[in-house]
Amino acid sequence: MNNIWIEKYRPKSLKEVVGHKEIVERLSAYVRARNLPHLLFAGPAGTGKTSCAIAIARELFGDTWRQNFHELNASDERGINVVRGKIKDFARTAPIGDVGFKIIFLDEADALTSDAQAALRRTMEMYSHICRFILSANYSSKIIEPIQSRCAIFRFKPLRDEDVRKLILRIADAENLELKEDAIDAIVFLSRGDLRKAINALQVAASVSKKIDANVVYEATSSVRPEEIKCIVEEALRGKFLSAREGLKDLFIKYGLSGEDILKQMHQVIFDLAIPEEKKIEMVEKIGETEFRLVEGGDEKIQLEALLAKFALIGKSFRP
């Protein structure tokens, strides 16, 4: 192996895109007409938003696709300066080749601040003669309406199990892997319709063994983090606040997780805990409250510590 498979097997053209039949058809029509409106791709992670954008560029521009396709990650640079600087600069340069426009792909556009989004809409209009925008977002509702109204919106759904299965088999075939039926089931189950997850899981398993069964998959992909997060929550419920707090510090410092990441994973973990159902709901409420506070500008470390203290109190209410 000499590449990361999520890149190696990224579709080179629209017809290679897995699933999303109607979407692909409409996008192909744009390519044939050699023209497209601004696009907004909405949907969960790993469903093919970026792949579709790249495939469009490859088909439209051919060899010059890299010069005409500018990729920007809004979640890394989310302020208004990016819109006024980088984006505008690229938008007003002339396209190379005969298509007449170039594409700015703004990934995770829902991470842009509302100021930045507001600044973006004028740019979209002003340079529309030489530049098209493709925005991707997990939720279209996080994009302000004026931008939504300037875009054709495409909704990407999580991929169906059989689509994931098909792709996994295709890759296994190309890589000469011996894949047991239960291994495929395991990967499909773990990925929950997220192709990036599925392919990564397959590659990790393949790096351990060429013969892959469910055990190999589970062992190879057993992720430390959900376990650790579960541990932290349990320690807090047991009233061992200090050790829970140490664990939390590791998540921030050693694993580089953001407060929101941790909250999201805590939310998932709670339903696996052996505690009264009612307490689970109480905990969900506290997690929600904490995330709300992060959005309001709270410090993630202090707010999450306070959440652990609340868990400790909840734990006390049902501990004998």
Partner: peptide, 26 residues
């Protein structure tokens, strides 16, 4: 390289680590 944000890349950093430690060629 993988067309994602650094933050998203952190979601599969462990995987990249594992697969490259298991596969020296990669």
């Amino acid at each position: 390289f993988c067309h994602v944000s650094a933050r998203k890349a952190n979601e599969f950093l462990d995987e990249v680590r594992k697969m490259s430690q298991g596969d020296i060629e990669l």
